[in-house]
Design a protein around this nucleic acid. Structure first.
Ligand code: FES
Ligand code: FES
Lengths: 186, 186
DNA sequence: TGAATCAGGACTGATTTGATCCTGTATTGA
DNA sequence: TCAATACAGGATCAAATCAGTCCTGATTCA
């Protein structure tokens, strides 16, 4: 249903924690206690991050995990992939052999663009974005006249992607994209 | 694990089908047969799309469903919401009361940006995008010098969002975003 | 040595998803 | 009129995925 797993959540929380104390190591228990996460599950997550080369483990007393890359060099995409495996938007992308309508499937290729856009969003978002100061409510978008105008406004990466105006032409019944239109609830 | 459900897939396939024969009605069975989808499940999906006011049902002999809005006025986001309910990226966004680390949760607000960016991607993508001609492989991106330069290149909505360069500053170990970097596999 | 900590496989229970079935209602056309 | 066609929607079942636990075995350090 297009959501991250709890494990991925936990992984991001843990990484953000590790990023907040650069260089230091924190044990699974430390982190789990700090955020009330199930210890054993978090352990699994950290193991996966370790295998993925994002954190390094230190055994023994006073051991734990430490971030071995710059927070800005670890994307959410990488984290999610390390923990949950490949991100697939639609079944079309995997079941190539088995899917019997693969030949006349009309949505696979168009959806690929959506897929790539989502991957890109995740790829741009890094642990350092996570570690930044509490987020201020996004200011309401100025209704842009043309694509370039709004792209010019300096903004952090993801926000920029978010606000790039559609300019998609047609869109008959529907006016320009309004924020309220996007997240009525979730 | 960040993927669409089959029901959402089916819904998009059905809508794309309805959009391809404007004005005409197609029965559940027609559509299910055309794409080898499970009839009863597709029926459920179409019911939900009907309740959402995206298609209209016609009972009786030669009945079926018809699209009652312009394809460009039906976003993938709306379809997904109608079928799978609200899109939630992380558990933080829902379990406000119950989650005991809600107060010191460090990832909720930052992730909201990602959430909104994904909603926006889905919101921009419409049934008419689905109905378009087979997609040509995206051309490799020119490595952009500054954000504006590439945004200037005329491109369809989603693709534009996709290729807006990061320009996120830091990103130490990692060079500019490369396509191959984003979808190594899925 | 022994306490602390990671590594990782096996396993269980809960939740979600996918799919089917069944009863009922509306519409059409012979 | 009435039978065939098609939608509406609740109930139910099976399969898959996810969340969480447990246990056994290394590794490190004091
Ligand atoms: S390839 Fe199977 S549904 Fe698209
Ligand atoms: S609010 Fe509960 S984990 Fe973020």
């Amino acid at each position: 249903m297009l959501k991250l797993t709890k494990k991925a959540d936990y992984g991001l929380i843990a990484l953000r924690h590790l990023a907040s104390v650069p260089g230091a190591t924190a044990s699974t228990k430390d982190i789990a206690d700090a955020y009330h996460l199930p210890v054993t599950l978090l352990a699994k997550v950290l193991q996966q991050l370790s295998r993925a080369g994002i954190v390094q483990s230190v055994s023994g007393t006073n051991g734990g995990y430490k971030l071995i890359r710059h927070p800005a060099a670890v994307s959410a995409l990488e984290v999610v992939r390390a923990i949950d495996g490949p991100v697939i938007l639609t079944h079309c992308f995997t079941e190539h052999g088995t899917c019997d309508q693969s030949d006349n499937c009309t949505v696979r290729e168009p959806l690929r663009k959506v897929h790539e856009a989502i991957l890109d969003v995740l790829n741009r978002f890094t642990i350092s974005d996570l570690a930044e100061s509490p987020v201020i409510r996004l200011t309401p978008l100025p209704v842009p006249v043309n694509p370039v105008a709004s792209a010019r406004t300096a903004r952090p990466a993801v926000a920029a992607a978010l606000t790039t105006p559609s300019g998609s032409g047609v869109r008959s019944g529907r006016a320009l994209l309004l924020e309220s239109d996007v997240h009525q609830e979730f």
